[in-house]
Nucleic acid binder design. Structure first.
Length: 304
RNA sequence: GCCGAGAUAGCUCAGUUGGUAGAGCGAAGGACUGAAAAUCCUUGCGUCCCCAGUUCAAUUCUGGGUCUCGGCA
């Protein structure tokens, strides 16, 4: 018997990845397929509505991995995701099951598929010190210390400049040099990446309907609960959190927050598409407007 | 009905002492190697409401009209 390939279902928020993945699992014999989330927000235990996390019913039907792995007060990142996800995929394969990775976090997808370079161990204090400095000085230093990285990074992109400098200070080796050494899942397994897409207008309609559904499901209360805790950098920026915080601070009303959440989600969808479009490994699939998830799942099965 | 203000990019508006115009937001495209739902880059010819007049030349001045928003009836 041939080993089934590892499936990666990628695509922007709101295309319907989860439903298709569930349907795909439904086409196989029971428990033959396990799902691995590739989502930077669904990893948080306390975030269900805002992250549109698979329901408990779905999780009862198909085993899911990389959901609820950390608390919102804990710092999480692509490296931690990668370690956990690689282990999950290996575990699934070792048990003779088929992994279906589902998600829209381009950075995490890249970390899992292509790996990350091994970092020396930058400290929090180093980063804080760098962030306290002026942008122009930071960029000038990067140009001196790692001209290759500086050439790729915009002189306004403080986050990336700080990151590159932090790597250099911690290890003494330019980040651009270290970046050449990395290794991921791609090439180790037979991986098929399916890119799910829909016409932009349709996608935006779905996204907006989903935001409305989140409000109905109790998004405001969920966010209120989150805001009572010392949120990690990433958790504090989950779409929905800063927008609703603005309402609680009396900056604007709830309708404004709803508008902003829709707007920011649309922007996010657009950036996701930029990321996916450049990855030539994706095999694109556009479900028809009335196509059901099982029909799409069957099309994926036919493609592979 | 009267008085006043306004009509310029998808939206909110700036501007041109008369030589056909520009910001913010939106939108679109792009980058992305340990915060990534983050961070950053690029892209603006549009009947300057309509008609007539003055002028070498009007979106800009003058007259008329239409519409919108205030105030007063």
């Amino acid at each position: 018997m041939n080993k089934p390939p590892v499936i990666f279902i990628a695509g922007p928020t709101g295309v319907g990845k989860s439903a298709v993945a569930m349907a795909f699992a439904g086409l196989a014999t029971p428990e033959a397929v396990e799902i691995v989330a590739c989502d930077a927000i669904q990893v948080y235990r306390e975030v269900a509505i805002a992250s549109d996390k698979p329901s408990s019913e779905m999780r009862r039907q198909v085993r899911h991995h990389l959901l609820d792995v950390v608390s919102v007060v804990e710092e999480f990142n692509a490296a931690r995701y990668r370690a956990l996800a690689v282990a999950a995929v290996d575990d699934i394969l070792a048990r003779g099951k088929q992994p279906v990775i589902v998600g829209g976090s381009g950075m995490y997808m890249m970390a899992l598929l292509d790996g990350l370079f091994e970092e020396g161990g930058a400290s929090e204090s180093l980063r804080v010190a760098l962030e306290g400095r002026e942008l122009s000085g930071l960029y000038a230093e990067l140009q001196r210390v790692d001209p290759q990285a500086a050439a790729k990074i915009s002189s306004n992109d403080k986050k990336r400049i700080v990151r590159a400098l932090e790597v250099f200070h911690a290890t003494g080796v330019p980040m651009s040099v270290q970046q050449k050494k990395r290794e991921g899942l791609w090439g180790k397994h037979d991986i098929r990446i399916i890119g799910l897409e829909r016409p932009r207008a349709e996608l935006y309609r779905r996204v907006e309907a989903r935001v409305d559904a989140m409000f109905d499901a109790g998004l405001v209360d969920e966010v209120k609960g989150l805001l009572r805790r010392p949120l990690s950098l990433t958790a504090a920026r989950i779409i929905g959190v800063p927008e609703i915080k603005g309402v609680l601070n009396g900056e604007y009303d709830l309708e404004r927050a709803r508008y902003l959440i829709k707007l920011h989600t649309r922007h996010y969808v657009k950036r996701q598409m930029t990321w996916f479009r450049k990855d030539k490994r994706l095999q694109w699939l556009v479900p028809g407007p009335n196509e059901t998830a099982p029909e799409t799942a069957q099309r994926i099965k036919d493609m592979i």
